[in-house]
Design a protein around this nucleic acid. Structure first.
Lengths: 223, 223
DNA sequence: ATGCAACATTATTTCGAAATTTCTTCCGTC
DNA sequence: GACGGAAGAAATTTCGAAATAATGTTGCAT
């Protein structure tokens, strides 16, 4: 999404972030500098800088003199995160409906078309990387018309943090009770119709639905 | 406020941040690594890391291969920042009123007492550093009862960003039309009385008031 | 005089090793 | 047998210099 190119630090920052978000670096696990340096084939310094930035973003935590570890997941944090996300994202969505112009509508329709045309699963219980990108792009487009770069940035950051919890859902991605594509279609419909209250309600339910599923899984797994 | 000790990086991060927020490093100005390395008497590496973290926080911007510069100030950003701040801070304040316990009330009363007992001006048009801290602590205490670490953290970050603009107000800190201490007293009163709507309105006006003054100054100064 | 290209200078970025701190293990003592 | 502590190992953090990219300057040709 944001492939800031140029320096090695940025490249490692992006890859590290993708690896954390993709679950290839387990939540709560300790991150050894040497290990990562070897993995990305760069010096320790750039790994360190990338980690510091990630820590500032909240995806990893820094223990002074004791290195870094991937942020630990907990039901409490997920609940807080979800509530905050609903607050910010619905607010931004409302503003989008109120202030969004034709360009916003167009981008939103396009993003939804891409999402609808991308399959969720890739192979054997593997989630399709492309779907994740398309999903993120759709939600991003939904709030992109709010007219506030600050609010938008905050919402994006929270959504990224929430992506971490997707790791919990690897096995039960197909929740029989939900029809996620239909929910997205409904969100698009309400946005185009400029039904602010309806959109806010639907979006809140959409976000909460995913979290409920995850919390159910966490409870079963005894977390 | 957050004197994370332990590593040199953290120390430089804190000092750098204080220097940016305190206006000793002019907004928009270029930050040369060697210059800062000499200033803080540390290696370039730690300066670099501290800057990267500050950039991730949004207080400075990173230009790949071209170093860093303090974030540039603009009336547009101030307006956006203020709106977002009002959205988040009033939301958090409302939650505090709804969910805050006795410990929250106590801390808030204490923070207000300290603020009320601290004079704004130090000497010749110099703002008292202690007052800034006390002011920050008061606003922090106001939203500390919201029960959401995430929301609280976001609100704090926005307030810090807004502090940058205080630089614009060096000359006209005593706005004849406002009685800031009275506003603070009123905020405390409404919070203790658990008047959520009243508190939200007063807080919004309080934040907006400062911004209006700054925007007026910016317009006069031709920014 | 103006545009352009090669060169020199400056600043950023990366590296690899030294210095510091924390973690582990092993030994002696109670 | 357990507790305390020191020596050793491992990892993080810092440094100073080398590599790399950007900027400024000079000289040449148009």
């Amino acid at each position: 999404m944001a492939p800031e190119t140029g320096t090695r630090s940025n490249a490692v920052f992006d890859r590290l972030r993708a690896d954390v978000l993709g679950g290839r670096l387990a939540p709560g696990s300790k991150l050894k500098l040497a290990m990562l340096g070897a993995r990305y084939e760069v010096s320790l310094s750039v790994v360190r800088e990338a980690l510091s930035r990630l820590a500032e973003q909240g995806l990893v935590v820094a223990h002074p003199q004791r290195g870094f570890s991937v942020m630990a997941l907990s039901p409490e944090d997920l609940t807080d995160l979800t509530n905050t996300r609903i607050d910010l994202e619905t607010l931004a969505a409302r503003r989008s409906v109120e202030h969004g112009d034709l360009a916003w509508e167009t981008a939103l329709v396009a993003a939804h078309h891409t999402l609808a045309g991308t399959s969720l699963m890739a192979g054997e219980g593997e989630v399709n990387e492309g779907w994740i990108d398309a999903h993120r792009a759709f939600h991003h487009a939904l709030v992109a018309g709010c007219g506030s770069p600050r609010l938008q940035g905050l919402a994006t950051g929270l959504r990224d943090a929430a992506e971490l919890y997707r790791i919990w859902s690897t096995s039960l991605t197909h929740d029989t009770k939900r029809d996620v594509p239909a929910e997205h279609a409904r969100l698009l419909e309400l946005a185009i119709a400029r039904d602010a209250d309806g959109l806010v309600a639907a979006l809140a339910a959409h976000i909460q639905g995913t979290t409920d599923m995850l919390l159910r899984y966490a409870a079963e797994a005894g977390l």
